[in-house]
Amino acid sequence: MMLTTATLAIAALAGLQQQQTDTTFAVAANARLRLSNHAGTVRVTGGDQATMRVRATHGSRDHIAITTRGTVIHIEAERDRGMPNFVEYEVTVPRGMAVELDGVETEMTVEGVGGDLSVASVEGGITVRGAGAAVDLNTVEGDISLEGGRGRISVSGVEGTVTVTGARGDLTVETVEGDITLDGVESTNVDLSTVDGDIVYRGTVQDGGRYRLTSHDGDIELGVATGLNATVSVATFDGSFEADPAFRVQISEVRPGRRFSFTLGTGSARVELETFDGEIRLRSR
């Protein structure tokens, strides 16, 4: 009996034997990266060289397939039969490259990539720093953190918090169970929604812009400098509203279950702050 257990343990260890892949190759200026992974971690870093380096730690029965189709470079672990094991990737790409990552049980990290970025996981968080172009992030279970981004920025979580800092562009952020926090954002088009979570937006409200922050069960906080020009619409069923006195908000009557609006400055931007059940705050910063 003891022997059998020992044999099994050795067999299991053999199956887990790790192997390294490390390869570097030149890539065209317009090349795109598409990496798919089942389980593990992926870290993609932008570098100064016109080359791509792929380092991967993977099971001995798996191999890393790097293939090109048109301008797209595909990276994927393969195994003759069955699903590849846990793979840890470290990939360095030319800084301006467009990157598309797709995983299932995979934690994703992207740093200093200036091209368009699309990252999707199912069970795993996503961390992006120094994004330079359009960003599309999507996971089911895990937190999402984005620093940077220009143009169209879209973030979708389900269970997990979303944090965005320093983004410039049109922002859409959606999650179901989790807080959404935006800091230092410059945008004329912001749409943030969660069902069960708080929303904090600290940034600018620009003339002519549109800002929509909605939750069902959570607080809403808009932190902006005074002197903005906005028509602010506030709605709650079972919550409350408070504004920093510095804004000199004039509301004749505030009752629960009612929507009301007020104008700041010229009223140029349109701001909607809504939560079914929670506090809505207008804070000066």
């Binding site: 390869t23 570097t24 190759f25 030149a26 080359t51 397939a65 790097i66 293939t67 090109t68 189709r69 470079i73 595909h74």
Partner: peptide, 10 residues
């Protein structure tokens, strides 16, 4: 430097 494996992948 290695070249990426040329292949028609699906």
């Amino acid at each position: 430097m290695d070249d990426p494996t040329p292949a028609v992948d699906s």
